[in-house]
Design a protein around this nucleic acid. Structure first.
Ligand SMILES: [Mn+2]
Ligand SMILES: [Mn+2]
Ligand SMILES: [Mn+2]
Ligand SMILES: [Mn+2]
Lengths: 223, 223
DNA sequence: ACAATTTTTTAGGCGAACCTAAATTTATAT
DNA sequence: ATATAAATTTAGGTTCGCCTAAAAAATTGT
């Protein structure tokens, strides 16, 4: 059994390791968890003794298969709750993350099962992130950063990389939401910003940083 | 700000004091919380220093106005969540308490407000217990223990005193649910058990203990 | 009234999850 | 290759929420 704090560390390790593909350094974790490195060293010893990560002094940590499964359970709960909040309780997509951080730790398999059917077994959360199924399987969709797409391309916004309230509110304000059609009119070479057309209507400029956090599926249909 | 553990103690104090009407002893609390008396003494010092209870050594604790408001907020959340689980997720009334014990500690006023409207501002939870409004007001309904009602009386089941899964499952099994019409046919003087008719159909015997945990509103309509 | 019993508090300890300061190891730069 | 810098671990400390054992206060029985 993992504590709430252990679940949060494990989730951070999962994400920082790019779904278990790389090792995570003590400092990276400390940074992400807003804790000091010494505290992280404490915790990774405990996680290691529980078998959810492997750890060699001074070499960072790697998530184990057992740890990956545990992390995915928490992520599944987080994303199901976010979906519930938006779909059923009319939250805005920028308001759900904080609450889901709490709800993700509720321990009741029956609850999650029933919540999942109540929501109609959703595949993605309000930010376009895939919801792992109950066996931890994720359906990853091929998508590219808007910043990497060519001029003239049109794509459908599939997910956002940065889920911070400020960024999400900005997107809402300029009319960008999941599913929106985005056409790249022109890219400014000197700063990477670009002019885009949203849903064949709004013509706006967005920064390189913004375009890096928008993930699209390219679609060349001309409509 | 109260911790999860502090909230649980405060809720126990509220209930054990009969909504703040009497003092609560250290041992009663220890018993209720499944902790040792020494741990309780620890905790009541902390709660006292936070101003949610008043405490005089060897005299037990009394909940303060501030504490009462805090306890009622937790109780409101508990009962709203139980209602959600039964009404929206199709939980049985005997399955919800444990999960609500976790959900009641989620801290988000917006969530509770939205949950409340999603549920249509319910007045009672699945066990017939009143849901405090957002200002902590409770609408208490006059009700009597079935064990105290006279032979020949008919009443509507309003709430249950004992919310344990075992008791609730027993009630479901013999066809007793909130709103059921209960007619007292005969009371056995030697052990306090009684013969009742449920919804003008089922005729069953129930123990004194069971009848003490059923709260009815008397209604003499003959139907 | 006072001895026995029960209740409550105090004293001292422990694990979880944090911290700061100091020591150690690894990486980098000349 | 060696000095410097950066990353990491160790040592020692704190608070919260629990424990056991012992001491003290309150209650009860005769
Ligand atoms: Mn989120
Ligand atoms: Mn979390
Ligand atoms: Mn309950
Ligand atoms: Mn609780």
């Amino acid at each position: 059994m993992l504590s709430l704090v252990e679940e949060n560390y494990l989730k951070a390790i999962y994400h920082l390791s790019d779904a278990g593909k790389s090792a995570v350094s003590t400092n990276a974790l400390a940074d992400n968890m807003n804790n000091k490195a010494a505290s992280v060293t404490d915790m990774i010893k405990r996680l290691s003794s529980k078998g959810v990560i492997s750890y060699e002094k001074y070499r960072g940590v790697n998530i184990s298969e057992k740890g990956r499964r545990a992390a995915l359970k928490v992520i599944r709960k987080h994303r199901l709750w976010e979906t519930f909040l938006v779909e059923k309780l009319n939250f805005n997509w920028d308001e759900v993350h904080e609450v889901a951080e709490q709800l993700e730790h509720i321990d009741s398999p029956l609850l999650i099962e029933k919540l999942d059917s109540f929501l109609g077994h959703p595949k993605v959360d309000p930010h376009g992130h895939p919801i792992p199924d109950k066996d931890g399987r994720i359906h990853e969709v091929k998508q590219v950063q808007l910043s990497e797409a060519k001029e003239g391309t049109t794509g459908i916004l599939h997910s956002v990389n940065d889920g911070s309230p400020k960024f999400l509110q900005y997107l809402s304000k300029i009319g960008i939401r999941i599913g929106a059609r985005i056409e790249i009119v022109e890219r400014m070479e000197f700063d990477g910003s670009m002019e885009i057309i949203i849903d064949d209507k709004e013509r706006v400029f967005i920064s390189r940083q913004a375009s890096e956090n928008l993930l699209i599926r390219e679609s060349h249909e001309k409509r």
